[in-house]
Amino acid sequence: MGHADAERHVTGEKYAEYVYGTIGVMVAVAGLNAGAHDVRATNAVVVVLIGALATWFAHAFSHLVGERVKRQGPVPRERIVAAFATSWMIVVAAVPATVVMVLSGLGLWSVSTGLSLANGTAVVSLAVVGVLVGRVSV
C-alpha cells in the first residue's frame, strides 16, 4: 500500500468511526429521551461521554483482538496506537451532543430540548459526512 493509499485508508476509517460514534450517541439520546422527565443535563452529559469513551475503547480493542488472530502473533505497538487514534473519532462524534447538553445544564434550554438538539446535531453530522464522502466517490 502506497503512502497515499494508506492515508486514504485511515481517512476512510475515520469517517466510518465518526458515523459509528454518531449513531451510538443517538442510541444514548434515545435511552435518555425515554425517561426525559427525570433526566438531568448532567446525567445526559455523563451517559453520552462515558458511552462514547467506552465505545471508543471497546471498538479499538475489539479491532486489535481481531488483528491479533489474523496476524497469528503480537500486534506491533504502532498498530495499537493507530487503532486507538482512528477510533478516537467515536469520541469526537459525541462532542456536539455533549456541548448541547452542557448548555442545557447551564440553563440555556430544557433537557428535553437539549436531547432534541442533540438528535438534530447528529442528523446534521451524518449529512455532513455524506457530503464529504460523496465528494470522494467516483
Binding site: M26, A30, A34, N119, A122, L126, V129, G130
Partner: peptide, 30 residues
C-alpha cells in the same frame, strides 16, 4: 461523476439519522 453518486451518501446517512429519530419518537409515544 453522476449527481446520484455525489448525493447518495447524504441521502442514505440522513435517512438513517432521521429513521432513528422517528423510531425514538414512536417509542416515546408508546
Amino acid at each position: 461523476m453522476t449527481l446520484w453518486s455525489r448525493v447518495r451518501y447524504v441521502v442514505i446517512l440522513t435517512v438513517i439519522g432521521t429513521a432513528i429519530v422517528a423510531l425514538e419518537a414512536g417509542a416515546h409515544r408508546l
